[in-house]
Computed example of a mutant assay.
Amino acid sequence: MEGLTVADANLTVYVHPSNANKVKDALLRQLSSLLFKYDENFDGVILAYEIKFESKDAKILPGLHPLFGVKLKANLLLFQPKVNELLEGKVVKLGKECIHVIILGFSSATIMSEDIREEFKFRIKHGVEVFASSAHKRHVIKTGSFIRFLVKSLDVDILHVNGSLIPSNTGCIHWLSRYGTEDISETDSCRSLKRPKPIEEQDSQAMVDLSLNSNHHHKSHKRTVTNGMKS
């Protein structure tokens, strides 16, 4: 699935002195507070992270409540969908006018009837509403199906995607992986939807201000970001 990026981040987190004896918990709690929310600094949604302390030394930030900064490195899994990319999700509701999809368990998508290619016909089979292909008898989309679709537009405020099933390389993933058309590459047709591992939240108090610098590596979809985190 497109829209997923791995990033290496250099972070500095400023922690309140009251958390001096539980710094790791403070950092984990602060990073966990950023999960599954769109962040302009990262230009995406953080799905998971893994941190490594860069130094045991801390820099004191003077003030009424002097904070101390801890440097660390983090590997981030980001969800960064773009227009015309292919996403995958599970159909949670289907009707004559639209298909409702959940992506990675937290983001929603809607595919309207005008964005469904003509070969798919809405039918009711054995009391179940489906979109069945008139060109390929076994190609059926129903509630519970995992589908691949194209991104038409994205509302980052509510993490909602408007999708399309017009391209020939979109539809039910199960069918595409077995009987996909010739213009779908073998690698792409075998992609599966993977849910990121849950992150256990930890207790802490930390203050954060983010800034971002990135270098994209096209081949591996891996980039490096630099952030400063403070009050």
Rank of each mutant, 00 (worst) to 15 (best):
G3A: 09
V6W: 10
A7P: 00
N10M: 03
L11V: 10
T12R: 11
P17A: 02
S18N: 09
S18I: 11
A20H: 03
N21A: 06
N21Y: 08
V23E: 10
L28P: 00
L28H: 10
Q30C: 13
L34I: 07
L35S: 05
E40I: 10
N41M: 02
G44P: 01
I46Q: 03
I46E: 00
I46L: 15
L47M: 12
A48R: 04
Y49L: 00
E50A: 15
E50P: 02
I51P: 06
K52Q: 14
F53E: 14
K56Q: 09
K59E: 15
K59S: 11
I60S: 04
L61E: 11
P62Q: 04
L67M: 08
K71R: 12
L72P: 05
Q80H: 01
P81R: 06
V83E: 10
N84Q: 06
L86R: 05
L86S: 05
L87Q: 07
E88H: 01
K93T: 06
L94T: 02
G95R: 02
K96T: 04
E97L: 09
I99V: 15
V101M: 06
I103H: 13
I103C: 05
L104M: 08
G105W: 04
S107H: 00
S108D: 15
S108R: 15
T110D: 07
T110N: 14
S113W: 08
E118P: 00
E119C: 11
E119S: 14
E119V: 14
E119M: 14
F120P: 08
I124W: 01
H126C: 00
G127C: 07
V128A: 05
F131T: 00
S134Y: 00
K142M: 12
T143C: 09
G144P: 03
R148Y: 06
V151G: 04
S153P: 13
L159I: 13
H160K: 13
V161S: 05
S164Y: 07
L165Q: 04
S168E: 12
S168T: 11
N169F: 09
T170K: 00
T170S: 08
G171E: 03
G171V: 02
C172H: 04
H174S: 14
L176R: 05
L176I: 12
R178S: 06
D183E: 14
S185K: 02
E186K: 14
S189I: 10
C190M: 13
R195F: 15
K197C: 09
P198I: 03
I199H: 08
I199G: 07
E201V: 15
Q202E: 08
D203L: 07
S204I: 09
A206V: 15
M207D: 11
M207I: 12
M207N: 06
D209N: 12
N215M: 10
H217T: 09
H218N: 12
H218P: 09
S220A: 08
S220P: 01
H221F: 11
R223C: 11
N227H: 04
G228N: 12
G228I: 14
K230P: 01
